[in-house]
């Protein structure tokens, strides 16, 4: 598993020991580095559970993650049929596959917002600060990291300060990404991912 680091912050006093490029450099002082858990590998297979009100869908999610702004994934049923396949590439949002029944503006808008949050789109480049809220486009993001500079929770609040949704990350004993959960506070909707063994 290659660890390609994309995010740094001057606000943390911790040193990340997973950054081999840092250890090999000639720097004589410690630079804190906050890690994006999706950069632990280039591809992931997850168990995926999505719920919206009383509707539940279980299946799988295949993800190819190049960097914080370039990734592609598809969600399949338990039987392997693709339900949606979306990509973020060089600033462009691409719908590779979505059935006509689901291809509605309001659904796409919600899916896009949720998956951008879930996969940390546009959030990783230098803006991760432990236990402090950062403001971005009328949102406030409060993030907590563990001792290995990996995020354990991110809460997204609107401009009024009211919590809108949160992300929780779980890791295995080797600090590899194991689970991710996105939860909405203003309506019953969740996306749960767990690494497929």
């Amino acid at each position: 598993m290659a660890s390609n680091l994309t995010a740094q912050t001057p606000n943390s006093n911790k040193t990340n020991t997973q950054d081999s490029t840092l250890l090999e450099s000639n720097l004589t002082f410690e630079i804190p580095v906050l890690l994006n858990p999706y950069m632990q590998d280039s591809t992931f297979l997850f168990n995926c559970k999505m719920s919206y009100k009383d509707q539940n869908i279980s299946g799988y999610l295949g993800l190819k993650y190049t960097d914080a702004t370039n990734f592609r994934f598809s969600v399949t049923t338990g039987m392997g049929n693709t339900m949606i396949e979306l990509e973020w590439k060089d600033g462009e949002f691409i719908k590779h596959y979505i059935p006509a029944d689901l291809d509605r503006k309001i659904i796409i808008k919600k899916l896009k917002a949720d998956f951008e949050f879930l996969f940390l789109y546009g959030y990783a480049n230098g803006h991760w600060t432990n236990n402090a809220e950062i403001k971005k486009k009328r949102h406030g993001y409060l993030t907590y990291f563990n001792d290995f500079e990996l995020p354990i929770s991110i809460t997204d609040s609107g401009c009024s300060g009211k919590k809108k949704r949160s992300l929780s990350f779980g890791y295995d004993e080797k600090n590899q990404l194991a689970t991710v959960e996105l939860k909405h506070f203003n309506f019953a909707s969740t996306i749960q991912l767990s690494i497929l063994e």
Binding site: T43, L45, Y60, G62, L63, K64, R72, S74, T76, M79, G80, E85, E87, L196
Partner: peptide, 13 residues
Amino acid sequence: RQTKEFSFMDRSL
């Protein structure tokens, strides 16, 4: 045995 391929990655389900 069912093998689901993804066009965009080299791992199968």
